[in-house]
């Protein structure tokens, strides 16, 4: 199921027509969308001709080079590519953490470039969840407080049942009163996952969430992310270097030198590995 992308493939219209569900065998069963009918758009996040240039003149680096891509709702997408290929940069731009040099980014129907800082912050807090590779937690807060932080910031309460479900599913229920420094790396990442999901965001961005974890801990986190997509309809975009991790996704997008160079649906780790070899990574 490997598909080399033609230049045409990076055009948004291609993605609109090439709906994943329509692709049959590649697609897996997805659970009901639980975030209601807030969004009419079928995709959770979208980038149109996004370019990000660092520096200027001689030393300018095109970290992301004219990328157009959509991340569908209720789908687990992995982003892969060699180091320095622009994965993190693309993700940051699409999450509203960074502004692209040119092009447009959308979360649902909302164009990020049109929002001021406060509205962008609120959008991040309410509609996006983050899991970073490291330093995910505020050291002064306990695990429980870290999880409810996004809710606390708006002064809203969290859904207790949902929270209990999350922590028990992640196996951190007995660690909730601990500070991050008292947790293992895997536990910290699982707390971060719980925080990312606690407000039931449409979309979760995870930048190498398993980068620092052993295979056991990785499995825990990845299974949980897949469950979030399958059972609860969240969209997950995960940057990873690990073909095994990528195999948890329903779709893998390959980046090289800031461009999208390939895509794989219903990947297996062997297929991912093969593709990576082919891309020279």
């Amino acid at each position: 199921m490997i598909k080399r992308l033609s230049p045409l493939a990076s055009h948004p219209r291609y993605w609109l027509s090439g709906s994943p569900r329509g692709l049959g065998g590649g697609a897996r069963q997805v659970g009901p969308v639980t975030y209601g009918e807030r969004r009419r758009s079928s995709c959770a996040a979208r980038a149109v001709e996004v370019t990000k240039i660092y520096g200027s003149g001689e030393t300018a680096v095109r970290a992301v080079d004219g990328v157009s891509i959509e991340f569908e709702r209720a789908r687990f997408t992995a982003v892969m590519g060699p180091s320095g290929s622009g994965k993190s940069t693309l993700m940051h731009c699409m999450a509203g953490l960074d502004a692209p040099t040119s092009g447009h980014t959308f979360i649902g129907d909302e164009e990020l470039g049109l929002l001021n800082d406060t509205r962008l912050t609120d959008l991040r807090r309410d509609r996006i969840g983050f899991v970073f590779q490291s330093f995910n937690l505020v050291p002064t807060l306990t695990a429980a407080e870290n999880i409810t932080l996004p809710a606390d910031l708006v002064g809203s309460t969290v859904d207790r049942d949902w929270l209990n479900y999350l922590v028990s599913n992640l196996g951190i229920a007995d660690r909730l009163s601990h500070r991050p420094s008292e947790l293992s790396g895997g536990q910290q990442q699982r707390v971060a996952c719980a925080r990312a999901l606690v407000r039931r965001p449409e979309l979760i961005f995870a930048d190498e969430p398993t980068g620092n974890l052993d295979s056991n801990a990785s499995t825990g986190v990845l299974t949980f992310l897949r469950q979030a997509v399958r059972d609860h309809g969240h969209a997950v975009v995960m940057v990873t270097h690990d073909p095994k991790a990528a195999a948890y996704a329903e779709r893998v997008v390959f980046l090289a030198d800031g461009r999208i160079v390939g895509e794989l649906l219903a990947p297996t780790s062997d297929a991912v590995l093969e593709q990576m070899k082919r891309l020279g990574a």
Binding site: L97, R124, R125, D126, F130, V138, L149, L153, R195
Partner: peptide, 16 residues
């Protein structure tokens, strides 16, 4: 710095 960055990323407003 990192901590504040994290807080901002998960939705803390400047005012906050």
């Amino acid at each position: 710095t990192r901590e504040i960055g994290l807080l901002r990323a998960v939705g803390m407003r400047r005012r906050q």
